[in-house]
Design a protein around this nucleic acid. Structure first.
Lengths: 328, 328
DNA sequence: ATAGGAAACGTAAACGATTTCTTTTTTTGC
DNA sequence: GCAAAAAAAGAAATCGTTTACGTTTCCTAT
């Protein structure tokens, strides 16, 4: 590997001069500066990140925290967008696993690697390790969860449900059931949005219409729907926790002779690709992962570059209702 | 952050002694060594990765090269397994994006970050940047493609097709069509396996039975299937490029009144979760991502630790045929 | 022509670890 | 009990950068 010293020797100047020249710290490109830069390029110079990090304690490297498996399309596409943003801003992305770090001490891991910041994509938000990280001096942005006084970017779980309810209401539905996903901030918000919209529209919601389930569990979702359909006062429309379960349910129901949306209307959540590739196309709500990633980076970069003046923000990114063919 | 120096002061020894104690370079745990280690733990010491990397030119960090989007379940689950393995072996994983690196010079990026090795999960295998990396002195393992003289781990694309063909043959099918995915090593291998099995079983394959398509394109897959079904000598079974297209096609066909497997048998590829969650369950072939990840790490760790004696290997990992309900 | 000031460059000290070499301490054999 | 060998600890160099601090060079104004 070619070092500053090598360039310095070739150019006949000192190492410091080369460093300044390459970092543009010299007053405008005098002839010599240009020569140095050209030589560096010719020699194929790239700064040694470790050395630079050691000296400046800046690594141009961000941590990504993701405890679950990557098997959800929402997360994997969010992740792709984060990767794109990182690239655009000149940062690398390193996974913050547990590794040696048995006590879920993400904070130490981040420190050890001199990470400039951490993006929490998905985690157990009640765990001590996460809270420690979020409240540490390391710039941290949390996605899809809100801590007071921390930078957070969430999708509009509350208002999206509001939109969905109003949408199906507009199409004539008055008996709307809601299958929730895992307990947590996301489900809480969605439930709140659901109740609020129903209340505002004067829709009565029997307790049995709201079920607590899990994300990404088509079998469970199907079971719930069948139960709901067996009720005397059965719902005409069911809001599913996500597209994955909804699609699975849709499929299973059809194979059992239930017609969607003739017999029952279904709404998904996420807007995964497959939901738009089959008939009937799912009516669903598509989160704006592009925008979420953008907001994450404006926050984290401000936190990194202006550690003094930066004030944590909670940002909500709204998605878009995608009208399909599963709501009558 | 607490440094070796701090520990040294507290313990009243030199920095060198602390370093040796922590790295176990002293002859067995004398009292002093134990004391130093305990103090280090109490003080919450973690070695500064940048400093250590600078001195040892080992980073305990591997690059992951993935050019496409993460939106395929095969890749995202492969990726999860790699992450698990990395954790288990004490490595971090950093994404090798393009960033500043306009001419796709992954090699420089890896060098700059002092990566100990690079895992190529998916890339344009003909691009100069990849070849440069693969033939460089940086330990590199390629997944799902084979370069001579490089470490490669591929799933058994050839023998899997062989198994699939024999399976449907055993169930009575003699007119078997095959929709290929994108051109490339994977498709080439699969096609070879397909032809070989057909030849061995004495099955005639009309040229129109083999179509060149794309991965993950349900619409295209459906179109091909419909064309095939319009033929006079129409196939009784179609092998699709992947589960995603196969599922989409299955769905679309059913909605158009075509029954699977009554009217036509379908076989997927990948074994994505959803393929096993609906009726009919897809007959498909499931790649062993766990094993692939394991093999990748045995290769790359040997390459890192024994740079002199390491000899590149090409390893094939076999998956498993999953018998579903889409083949009559 | 020269003093004064600005600009450019060089010197050297960091950053936090590892490691070689040297010195000190401990052990061991007689 | 002492010399020699072995073991442990310390001192200092080093990895490749950045950067504070001096020094030199070069301009400009008097």
């Amino acid at each position: 590997m070619v070092r500053l010293k090598d360039i310095a020797e070739v150019c006949g100047v000192s190492v410091a001069t080369v460093s300044r020249a390459l970092n543009g710290l010299t007053n405008e490109n005098r002839e010599r500066t240009a020569f140095i830069c050209q030589t560096a390029r010719d020699m194929g110079y790239y700064p040694n990140a470790a050395a630079r990090t050691l000296k400046t304690s800046r690594s141009n490297n961000l941590g990504i925290l993701y405890e679950d498996r990557m098997n959800h399309e929402y997360f994997s596409s969010l992740f792709d967008e984060l990767r794109r943003e990182a690239d655009a801003h000149g940062y690398d992305l390193t996974f913050l696993g547990q590794g040696d770090f048995s006590e879920s001490n993400y904070y130490e891991h981040a420190r050890q690697r001199n990470l400039d910041g951490v993006i929490v994509v998905q985690a157990d938000y009640d765990a001590a390790g996460i809270i420690r990280l979020a409240t540490s001096s390391i710039p941290t942005v949390i996605i899809d969860h809100t801590y007071d006084g921390c930078d957070c970017v969430t999708s509009d779980n509350r208002s999206s449900m509001d939109q969905i309810v109003r949408h199906v209401y507009a199409r004539g539905h008055r008996r709307i059931a809601f299958i929730q996903g895992e307990k947590g901030a996301v489900s809480r918000e969605r439930l709140a949005g659901f109740y609020k919209a129903c209340a505002e529209l004067g829709i009565r919601v029997p307790v049995e219409y709201v079920r607590e389930g899990h994300f990404h569990d088509p079998a469970e979702c199907t079971a719930f729907i069948r139960e709901l359909m067996r009720m005397d006062d059965k719902p005409s429309c069911v809001l599913c926790p996500d597209d994955y379960s909804c699609l699975g349910a849709l499929w299973l129901l059809e194979s059992q002779g239930v017609r969607v949306p003739a017999d029952i209307s279904l709404v998904g959540y996420d807007g995964i690709r497959m939901s738009q590739m089959m008939t009937p196309r799912l009516t669903t709500y598509c989160q704006d992962t592009v925008q979420i990633a953008k907001e994450v980076f404006t926050l984290i970069i401000d936190a990194i570059e202006n550690p003094e003046t930066h004030i944590p923000k909670q940002i909500t990114v709204s998605g878009m209702l995608m009208e399909g063919e599963t709501v009558r």
